[in-house]
């Protein structure tokens, strides 16, 4: 892993990236201290926590920005399911399931649009699922649906914490809402969708290692879905009783950063 390469790439999207760390020396010092204390030094987790530290408390994005980011994904999903329904490929119970998921995504678009407007923002519009990326076969369409839903789950998770301890907002037509709660309420519906699509495919409803889609970029990232370290504990070895990496990884869904989600290898490559 080339640490400075990451910083450089970060600097491309965030010119102040280096300024967020005290200095290069401080970065190295903290790396040294961590390295002495644990063998985690070479894992992405350490880097993740270091970046989290460097970026903690920065409020470059307003709640409107965060909601517009969520809306972008919902628009992409809604347009995907529009194409899915139009393709008419679903069979049996799949017809109702795809229709219901489409209904939810459409409603998420409407809800986020309303909230952004009420907060004085300009809601994102016109995000379309690239038609050339829409597969012909039902089975392949379900794979894309699964990847999109799992990505949605990871994307909401990547930003929800930025809404920590925000005051309730009075939204015209809805009433008093807490933006973190609303984000989590949508997030868990996405997880239910992901679970069902996986079930339809005869796969585990949760993200497991060694799946047919595991190599898809949607499951990789700075904190990949295979991560076994939470809150500083390696859960396979540090909880008194050993737990299998498969169980530990499946017990937690991991976040994706906006840059990761919008990368061409993930959802960014499906917009067109």
């Amino acid at each position: 892993m080339n640490f400075f390469k990451i910083i450089e790439q970060l600097a491309e999207v965030d010119s102040d990236a280096l300024g967020r760390f005290d200095s290069r020396r401080a970065v190295f010092q903290s790396l040294g201290t961590f390295a002495k204390r644990s063998a985690l030094a070479t894992t992405p987790v350490l880097l993740g926590s270091m970046f989290q530290k460097a970026y903690a408390g920065t409020s470059v994005d307003t709640p409107i920005d965060i909601l517009n980011y969520a809306l972008t994904l919902e628009l992409l999903e809604a347009d995907f399911y529009r194409q899915f329904v139009a393709a008419g490929t679903a069979t049996g119970a799949g017809v109702a399931a795809i229709a219901q998921i489409k209904k939810h995504e459409d409603a998420h678009v409407a809800l986020l649009t309303n909230v952004i407007k009420a907060l004085g923002g300009t809601p994102k519009t016109g995000v379309k699922f690239k038609t050339s990326a829409f597969p012909a076969a039902y089975a392949d369409q379900l794979v894309v649906a699964q990847v999109l839903e799992d990505t949605g789950v990871r994307a909401y998770k990547g930003r929800a914490a930025e809404l920590t301890a925000t005051a309730d907002q009075n939204i015209t037509g809805i009433g008093n809402v807490n933006l973190l709660t609303v984000a989590l309420q949508i997030h868990s519906v996405e997880a239910r969708h992901a679970s069902h699509i996986r079930y339809m495919r005869g796969k585990n409803p949760w993200v497991t290692t060694g799946e047919d889609v595991s190599s898809n970029a949607a499951y990789t990232g700075a904190i990949p879905e295979s991560n076994v370290t939470q809150a500083g504990f390696n859960l396979t070895t540090q909880l008194g009783t050993p737990y299998s990496a498969a169980d530990v990884a499946a017990s937690f869904d991991e976040p994706l950063t906006p840059a990761e989600v919008l990368d061409m290898s993930r959802a960014g490559g499906l917009v067109g």
Binding site: K157, A161, E162, T164, H187, R192, S195, P205, W206, A231
Partner: peptide, 21 residues
């Protein structure tokens, strides 16, 4: 605490997967 919210958000979606199943 932001880190606690981040951690628990990783759990709630797995619970939602369980519930759906």
């Amino acid at each position: 605490t932001i880190t606690t919210v981040s951690l628990l958000a990783k759990v709630v979606s797995v619970e939602a997967r369980h519930a759906a199943l």
